[in-house]
Design a protein around this nucleic acid. Structure first.
Length: 242
DNA sequence: AATATTTGACCAGG
DNA sequence: CCTGGTCAAATATT
């Protein structure tokens, strides 16, 4: 989203500790065009249990209570905003008080940086793991039988199978599912990776994205769709699927 | 010391 | 004037 101002000049007078803001008006063509509504800013909305692990690195720059909303809205921009001028931003807002809580994430602008987005393969694995996480939280389900139904009539390549099995084992082992506080007090702060070391964030996200798209975005891989659909149907979460 | 988050203030648009 | 989005000093963490 086009910003109204820009970082102030470092040479300005900051004598009282709080410098005057917006001394420099952003005169980029982008901002001007946006101001005149000539540029259509690309946005998309997703619903996810884990809004902070979407494969990109984000930096929080604000939080606001939104009128009529129970939960605050957090504002993030790409970590590489300054380095590479990446315009991508997102707003994260908790959508309900369920366990796990569902978040609405509004992405604005595409990444132009060389951010470390996870590969489709990784995303698929993460995606499945998250589905399992959510499933186990919702109800005690019999994983093997559910899985068998999910894959009925759908052939998987070896890598896909490995990814699924790996994800399921990780989830079933409880190391990820048990990371919450029991879910009694789900709040947006508890899901914020504040101070989370980057290495941990990249290596093994304990809470991974479930892409419950509100838009028409394509799934990352072909084999996810039947899996996702059947999981949510089986778990009586079909209302998630639009 | 470097980097990231918090949070109150600022600004523009409606 | 109200609201949402952003800034940036203060603060926390590594």
């Amino acid at each position: 989203m086009a910003k109204r101002g820009d970082y102030m000049d470092s040479s300005c007078d900051c004598s009282n500790g709080r410098a005057p803001k917006r001394l420099v008006q952003d005169c980029s063509s982008y901002a001007q065009a946006h101001a005149k509504k000539k540029v259509r800013i690309s946005t998309r909305t997703e619903y996810t249990y884990a809004p902070y692990h979407d494969g990109y690195q984000w930096r929080k720059y604000g939080q606001k209570m939104i009128r009529g909303s129970t939960y605050p809205r957090c504002y993030y921009r790409c970590t590489y905003h300054q380095d590479h001028g990446c315009p991508a931003t997102k707003h994260v807002e908790q959508n309900n008080s369920q366990d796990p809580p569902l978040f609405r994430v509004i992405y604005t602008n595409e990444h132009t940086c060389c951010s470390t987005h996870v590969s489709d393969y990784m995303a698929s694995s993460i995606h499945i793991q998250q589905i399992v996480d959510a499933s186990l939280r919702e109800a005690e389900v019999e994983i093997p039988s559910q899985l068998a139904q999910c894959f009925g009539g759908h052939e998987l390549i070896e890598e896909e199978t490995d990814a699924i099995i790996s994800s399921l084992l990780t989830a079933i082992s409880g190391c990820d599912v048990a990371t919450s506080d029991g879910g009694q007090h789900a709040a947006i702060e508890e899901n914020t990776p504040a101070r989370m070391p980057r290495s941990r964030n990249e290596a093994s996200p304990s809470i991974s994205p479930v892409l419950l798209r509100a838009s028409s975005d394509k799934l990352k891989t072909d084999f996810i769709e039947p899996l996702e659909t059947q999981w949510f149907e089986l778990l009586d979460l079909g209302w998630f699927i639009e």
